[in-house]
């Protein structure tokens, strides 16, 4: 069973700061990590490989330093690492990114593609579903449990008030949530192999035969108009006194703010 796991290198914080002038993420001084959901995707892929054999390839699109995220995945047990790195990919929105990842996936070959639900720096949860559309694959999102016999998968798809049980034939694409499993730690030997023995395959736009109009800024139907950090909330106010007094004060304050008239 050949499995591709899509991973993203993200800043290690959910409290991302944005440069108010340029509207881009401030990455300086923020350590980079493998996106947490993607580690769950990798763990599931490794478990399937242990059961059915085959190969796990981790795939990422990003700047050269995204190699570190791939090597960490390799230290956890991934066999191959592919990094899509080209200036032509820059400025891609989720649609262009998912197209690019999809073209690379075609070149690698797969029975199953596993993505994390979403990245902590963008929170779109769009890459997986869009990749499935580009590749005309059945997709199951928000997977919290998965079983496979190597030919088909049966997944539990988490909903707010329960779950759906969905079956799909392979090849397919799933996006997974943290409830699915507990990712393993890299082993010491895995770290040695990832850094000394294994190579990251780096592909540019030409290598994956990408259509130039579908990648990067040009292939992106959306563009970011403005990024901003949310204004910090003002300090809360605690009213004091008896319930009656506090209610009175509250009404006055709400009237002041024109919430009540």
């Amino acid at each position: 069973m050949n499995i591709i796991v899509c991973v993203k290198q993200v800043p290690d914080t959910t409290d991302v700061k944005i440069d108010p002038k340029t509207g881009t993420l401030i990455r300086e001084g923020v350590p980079s990590i493998v996106n947490p959901d993607d580690k769950h995707a990798l763990e599931e892929a490794l478990r399937m490989k242990e059961k059915f054999g085959g190969k796990v390839t981790v795939l990422s699109m990003g700047p050269p330093q995204a190699e570190d995220a791939l090597r960490e995945c390799s230290a956890m047990g991934a066999d191959d690492m592919v990094l899509l790195c080209d200036r032509a990919f820059a400025g891609a929105d989720t649609w262009a990114t998912s197209y690019t990842l999809g073209e690379a996936a075609k070149k690698i070959g797969y029975d199953l593609i596993i993505c994390g639900r979403e990245a902590i720096d963008g929170d779109t949860a769009q890459i997986g579903p869009q990749m499935a559309e580009h590749l005309h694959l059945p997709q199951i999102t928000y997977v919290k449990n998965v079983e496979t016999d190597g030919n088909k998968i049966v997944c539990e798809r988490a909903l707010e008030d329960g779950y759906e049980k969905i079956e799909a034939s392979l090849p397919a694409l799933i996006t997974v949530i943290a409830d699915l499993n507990k990712p393993r730690y890299p082993s010491v030997r895995g770290i040695v192999e990832a850094y000394r023995e294994k190579k990251v395959t780096v592909w540019n736009a030409k290598d994956i035969c990408a259509d130039g109009t579908c990648i990067g800024m040009e292939g992106s139907p959306t563009s970011v108009k403005r990024s901003f950090a949310p204004e910090p909330k003002g300090k809360g106010e605690v009213l004091k006194g008896s319930v009656k007094e506090m209610s009175k004060q509250l009404v006055v304050k709400l009237k002041d703010k024109n919430v009540l008239r």
């Binding site: 010491v188 030997r189 040695v192």
Partner: peptide
């Protein structure tokens, strides 16, 4: 032990990881 932290600098053929001594000190 299962992660390889008990024989870090031992070469792979003898069950270790062949890691360097600074890494061992760090661990």
């Amino acid at each position: 032990g299962a992660l390889g932290f008990m024989g870090m600098t031992v070469p792979k053929e003898w069950g270790g990881s062949g890691m360097d001594d600074i890494s061992y000190a760090i661990a």
